[in-house]
Amino acid sequence: MGSKKVGNQTIVFENGPYIISGHTIAGPMEGQGPLAASFDTILKDTSDGEKSWERTESKMLEKAMREVANKADIPLDSVDYLLAGDLLNQIISSNFAARQIGLPFIGLYGACSSMALSMAMGSMLIDGGFGSKVICSASSHHETAERQYRLPTEQGNQRPMYGQWTVTGAGGVLLSDSGTGPKVTTATIGRVIDYGETDVNNMGAAMAPAVADTIINHLNDLQRQADYYDLIVTGDLGSVGLQLLLKVLEKNNVKIPNNFNDCGVMIYNTEQDTHAGGSGCGCSAIVFAGHLLKKVYAGNLKKILFIGSGSLHSPTSALQGETIPAIGHAVSIEV
């Protein structure tokens, strides 16, 4: 075993890559939320002139991939790997976006944890010496997710109060072996945890134990306390999942300073009536690559633990009554 692995499931990067740029594209609803100012592009409508929402999602992701390279002033050709993930069957948004880009591509599926997963994998590729520039990205789209996982968009239905709203958005970051600024310093790859939740509308509850497991292992492996970080931010637990996470951590004697938050909670106003907050790959992707990364660049945040949370069910498994397995992947970003 290499010396980079510490404890049970954490990797400490020797030469952690720099996050040299980030780009975000958000949907109209996200553009009315509190983080609107942090997004690079806000779509006027959910289709953005495309004939299907699937095409819109793929186009957003492609644009995010191109723009991160553009912003960092790096020709796209010099990027070694493209990592991306999304929620649609066979990750078509990522595959189709990568078709347009034409770079070596690794498609990832970690459900809503895809952004954190892609950053962990990208950092491994760079620290391992397998490349020097990696684009890590993820996307989701409210309408594409809705029609795949739930009901047709025009079908009337009352969403439960603990339900979450899939974010329309695509975000990407460019990792580089050289540069200045924030670095990915460690990554904790999560394991799949299932606490028996069967309600697909209550994904926060399904994912909270997996996130708790990853946080506990991360802190144990590195012998850190939670207050080591300025911010511990989860991907899309929503308000219900975040409360559950804090309760579970408390039961496991993790001292909880007041530094926990969740991208799904941050992205919408309560007046937007999303119930428990945002969800989807795009949720953590645009909050991280937009709002949080800007704060890190500005020096307002120095140490972040970013934990993507993914709920690994499918419409088929849900219909067959299976419980929902979930996963959390953590990366720490330090200046």
Binding site: M161, D213, V240, L244, K247, V248, N252, H275
Partner: peptide, 25 residues
């Protein structure tokens, strides 16, 4: 699972979930 494990049983967690999930009005 390999320890450290979460110090909560699925049954207790289920109860906690019911408690914290907002009910329909």
């Amino acid at each position: 699972l390999r320890p450290p494990n979460l110090n909560i049983t699925p049954e207790d967690y289920k109860e906690l979930t019911t408690q914290l999930s907002p009910k329909p009005t």
